[in-house]
Amino acid sequence: PDDLEKRARELLKRGKNPDEIREYLRNAGYDQSQAEEALKRAL
């Protein structure tokens, strides 16, 4: 898994919901489609 996916998994483990994770990834400078893909793979 790429770093983005790892980060998404990490956040899920900490109890973040998908919307929070999307926002976090966007704020971290990733584009929307990258964030969506990583989140899908992590779920």
Rank of each mutant, 00 (worst) to 15 (best):
K40A: 12
N27Y: 06
E10H: 05
L12T: 03
A8K: 00
P18A: 12
E20Q: 09
K13Y: 07
R26G: 06
R9W: 05
Y24Q: 08
A8S: 04
E5P: 05
K40V: 10
G29S: 02
R14Q: 15
A38E: 02
K16C: 12
R26C: 11
R22D: 02
I21Q: 00
K13T: 08
L39S: 01
K6R: 14
E37D: 10
R22Y: 14
P1A: 13
K16P: 01
R41A: 10
G15K: 02
E36M: 04
D2N: 12
E23D: 12
E20I: 03
R26P: 00
N27G: 09
R22H: 06
Q34C: 11
D31K: 05
R26H: 09
A8L: 15
E23S: 05
K6S: 11
N27W: 07
K16I: 13
Y30A: 12
L43N: 04
K13V: 09
K16T: 08
L25D: 00
R9Q: 08
R26M: 15
E20C: 05
L11Y: 05
P18S: 07
E20R: 02
Q32C: 09
R26Q: 11
S33N: 13
A38D: 01
L11F: 05
E20Y: 09
A28H: 11
E36N: 07
Y30I: 08
Y24S: 08
R22V: 15
E20N: 03
L39K: 00
N17M: 10
A38W: 09
Y24G: 04
D31W: 03
P18Q: 07
G29M: 02
Y24P: 00
N27T: 08
R41P: 01
L43Y: 06
G29E: 01
R26K: 13
D3P: 07
E20M: 05
L39H: 00
P18N: 06
N17V: 07
P18K: 07
E36Q: 05
P1M: 15
A35Y: 12
Q34L: 12
L39M: 06
R14H: 14
A38H: 01
P1G: 12
Y24M: 15
Q34N: 06
E5F: 15
R9T: 09
L12N: 03
L12C: 04
A42G: 03
P18G: 06
G15F: 03
L12H: 07
R41S: 08
L12V: 11
A35Q: 04
A8D: 00
R9I: 11
L4Y: 06
L4M: 09
E20D: 07
N27K: 11
K13A: 14
K40C: 12
N27C: 08
P1E: 12
A35R: 03
Q34K: 10
G29C: 03
D19Y: 05
A42Q: 02
Y30K: 02
E37M: 05
D19I: 06
R7S: 09
L11Q: 05
E23N: 06
E36P: 00
P18D: 04
R26Y: 10
K6Y: 10
A35I: 15
L12K: 04
S33R: 12
L25H: 00
E23P: 00
A35P: 00
K13S: 13
Q32E: 14
R9S: 08
N27S: 10
K40Q: 14
G29I: 01
R7L: 15
E10L: 04
Y30T: 03
K13E: 14
E5A: 14
E36V: 04
I21D: 00
E36Y: 03
A8E: 00
N27F: 07
D3T: 10
L39N: 00
L25I: 04
E23R: 06
Y30G: 03
L39E: 00
G29T: 01
R22A: 08
D31Q: 07
R22E: 06
E36L: 04
R26I: 15
L43Q: 08
Q32M: 14
K13I: 10
G15I: 02
L43G: 05
L25G: 00
I21W: 01
D19A: 09
R41N: 10
K40I: 12
Y24E: 13
P1H: 11
A42W: 05
A42C: 06
A28F: 09
D19W: 06
Q32D: 14
L39Q: 01
K16V: 14
A8V: 15
R41L: 08
A28S: 09
E36T: 05
E37K: 07
L11H: 03
D3I: 09
G15N: 03
D3E: 13
L4F: 05
R14T: 14
L4T: 05
L43H: 04
E37A: 12
A28G: 06
G15H: 03
R14D: 15
G29A: 02
I21S: 00
L39G: 00
Q34I: 11
K40P: 01
R7F: 15
A42S: 04
R26A: 11
L11R: 01
E10K: 04
K6W: 11
K6V: 10
E20H: 04
K6M: 13
S33C: 09
A42L: 14
S33W: 13
R9M: 10
E37I: 09
G29R: 01
E10F: 02
A38V: 10
A42H: 01
I21N: 00
E23M: 05
D31Y: 03
R22W: 09
P1S: 12
R22G: 04
K13P: 01
A42E: 02
D3M: 11
L39D: 00
D3V: 09
L25T: 00
L43D: 03
E10T: 04
N27R: 09
A42K: 01
R22F: 13
L4A: 14
E20F: 10
R26T: 12
I21Y: 02
G15Q: 02
Y30W: 08
L43K: 04
A8N: 00
I21V: 13
S33T: 14
E10V: 04
K6I: 10
D19P: 03
A35E: 01
I21A: 03
L11K: 01
G15M: 03
Y30F: 12
G15E: 01
D3W: 14
E23Y: 03
Y30P: 01
Q32G: 10
N17S: 15
E10M: 04
Y24F: 13
R9D: 05
L4Q: 03
Y30D: 01
L11I: 01
D19H: 08
R41V: 06
K6N: 11
D31N: 12
L11W: 07
D19F: 06
N17E: 09
R41M: 08
E23K: 05
P1I: 15
R7D: 06
Q34M: 13
L4G: 07
Y24N: 07
L12F: 05
G15W: 02
R26E: 09
R22P: 02
Y24A: 14
R22T: 08
E36G: 03
N27L: 14
A8G: 01
L12Q: 04
Y24I: 15
L11M: 14
D3N: 09
Q32T: 13
L25E: 00
L39V: 11
R9V: 09
R9L: 14
E36K: 03
E5M: 15
E10W: 03
E10A: 07
A38Q: 02
D19S: 10
K16W: 15
R14A: 15
R7H: 11
L25N: 00
D3Q: 09
K6L: 12
D2Y: 08
R7T: 15
E23F: 03
D31P: 12
Y30Q: 02
A38R: 01
K6T: 11
Y30R: 01
E23L: 04
G15L: 03
R9K: 12
L39I: 14
L43F: 07
R26S: 10
L12M: 06
Q34T: 11
G29K: 02
K6D: 10
E20P: 00
Q32L: 13
Q32P: 14
D19N: 10
R41W: 05
Q34Y: 07
D2T: 12
E23Q: 08
R7M: 15
A28M: 15
R22Q: 06
L11N: 01
E37G: 06
P18L: 12
A38L: 08
E10G: 04
K16L: 15
A38M: 07
K16A: 13
D2I: 12
I21P: 00
N17Q: 09
D31E: 11
A42D: 01
E5Q: 10
K6P: 03
D3G: 09
A42R: 01
K16Y: 15
K6E: 12
A35C: 08
R14V: 13
R22N: 04
E5N: 08
L4N: 02
E37L: 05
A28T: 05
Q32K: 11
L12S: 03
N27D: 11
R9E: 08
R14N: 15
D19G: 06
R26W: 07
L4H: 05
R14I: 14
E37W: 03
R7A: 14
Y30V: 09
K6F: 11
E37S: 08
Y30N: 03
D3F: 13
D31F: 03
L4E: 02
R9Y: 06
E36F: 03
P18M: 10
A28Y: 07
G15T: 02
K40N: 12
D19Q: 09
Q32A: 14
L4R: 03
K16E: 06
